[in-house]
Simulated assay, not measured.
Amino acid sequence: MKSYLNNLHKAFENRTRLGVMSALTVNESVSFNDLRELLGVTDGNLASHLKALEKEQFIEVRKSFIGRKPNTSYMITKVGKTAFSEHLDALEQLIKEQSK
Rank of each mutant, 00 (worst) to 15 (best):
N6I: 11
N6R: 15
N7G: 04
L8S: 00
L8H: 03
L8P: 02
H9A: 05
H9Y: 10
A11I: 00
A11F: 06
F12S: 00
E13V: 04
N14M: 07
N14T: 06
N14Q: 08
R15C: 11
T16S: 12
T16R: 09
T16I: 15
R17L: 04
L18A: 09
L18E: 15
G19K: 13
G19F: 13
G19R: 11
V20H: 06
V20Y: 02
V20C: 08
M21G: 02
M21K: 00
S22N: 14
L24H: 02
L24M: 08
L24D: 02
V26S: 10
V26E: 11
N27H: 15
N27C: 10
N27Q: 10
N27E: 09
E28R: 14
S29N: 06
S29L: 03
V30D: 02
S31V: 03
S31I: 04
F32P: 02
F32H: 09
F32V: 05
N33G: 06
N33Q: 14
D34T: 14
L35V: 10
R36F: 04
R36W: 04
E37N: 11
L39R: 10
L39C: 10
L39W: 11
G40W: 01
G40P: 01
G40L: 03
T42W: 09
G44P: 07
L46T: 06
L46Q: 06
L46W: 06
A47H: 11
A47F: 09
A47N: 13
S48Q: 09
H49T: 06
L50P: 01
L50T: 02
K51S: 10
A52S: 05
L53T: 04
K55P: 05
K55R: 14
K55I: 03
E56Y: 04
Q57W: 00
F58I: 05
I59T: 03
I59W: 00
E60M: 10
V61M: 12
V61R: 15
V61G: 07
R62I: 14
K63Q: 15
S64K: 14
F65Q: 15
I66M: 05
G67F: 01
G67V: 01
R68Y: 09
K69S: 12
K69V: 12
P70K: 15
N71M: 11
T72W: 10
Y74C: 03
M75F: 12
I76L: 13
K78Q: 12
V79P: 09
G80F: 05
G80K: 06
G80Y: 05
K81P: 05
K81A: 15
T82G: 07
T82N: 13
A83D: 06
A83R: 09
F84I: 01
F84N: 03
S85T: 03
S85V: 01
S85P: 01
S85M: 07
E86T: 02
H87A: 06
H87S: 03
H87K: 05
L88T: 00
L88F: 02
A90D: 02
L91H: 08
